[in-house]
């Protein structure tokens, strides 16, 4: 993932906070936020993940004029090669196994971030619930309009051999 311009906006923060069920007014009420320790609206701790909105190539967003693997007339809009994997991970690039954030400071409306991602380690594991698991790590650095590092994020994705048995 590479994001050249991730403008942190008040309405996006409000919608994000709503979606995680957080009614804290520091996420939407600028007047209230002035009375708090940060002194401004800030973004909730996991907000940086929504940089996906600003990644032009993000593969989990339908794009105009391109096939999409979700359902329409058919259960999927993409005819897939038989992978023999039973759709493990759902054809969506796998599942999210871990996520880590280090906050150098908290985001606020008006910030304009860039994000660069580099691959980390990969490893394999055998599991009873989903067969062979292939883990891959990626590290994303978010920098602000002054080039300062504001958040370091480390994600781990996992591709499963078959759908995870929830039992």
């Amino acid at each position: 993932m590479a994001v050249d311009k991730f403008p942190v906006e008040a309405s996006h923060i409000m919608m994000f906070a709503r979606s995680v069920g957080d009614a804290n007014p520091i996420y939407y009420d600028a007047e209230y936020a002035k009375t708090t320790e940060p002194g401004t609206v800030i973004a909730p701790p996991t907000f940086a993940q929504s940089s996906a909105q600003f990644d032009p190539d993000y593969f989990l967003r339908p794009k105009i004029g391109e096939p999409w693997f979700g359902s329409g007339k058919e259960p999927t809009g993409i005819k897939r090669e038989s992978s023999g994997g039973g759709g493990g991970g759902g054809g969506g690039g796998g599942l999210h196994a871990e996520q880590h954030f280090e906050y150098h400071r908290h985001l606020k409306p008006g910030d304009v971030l860039t994000a660069t991602t580099r691959p980390g380690e990969t490893w394999e594991k055998e599991s009873k619930r989903a067969g062979k698991l292939i883990f891959s790590e990626s590290i994303t650095e978010y920098r602000d309009q002054n080039g300062e590092l504001v958040i370091t994020a480390r994600g781990v994705g996992v591709r499963t051999e078959r759908p995870v048995d929830s039992k």
Binding site: R18, P75, G93
Partner: peptide, 21 residues
């Protein structure tokens, strides 16, 4: 809000018929 539109989270038909959950 997050921009993660993976159908596994919102598309019942895809998730049950294609992904097998």
């Amino acid at each position: 809000a997050s921009g993660d539109y993976n159908p596994l989270h919102t598309d019942e038909i895809f998730t049950t018929k294609v992904a097998g959950y």
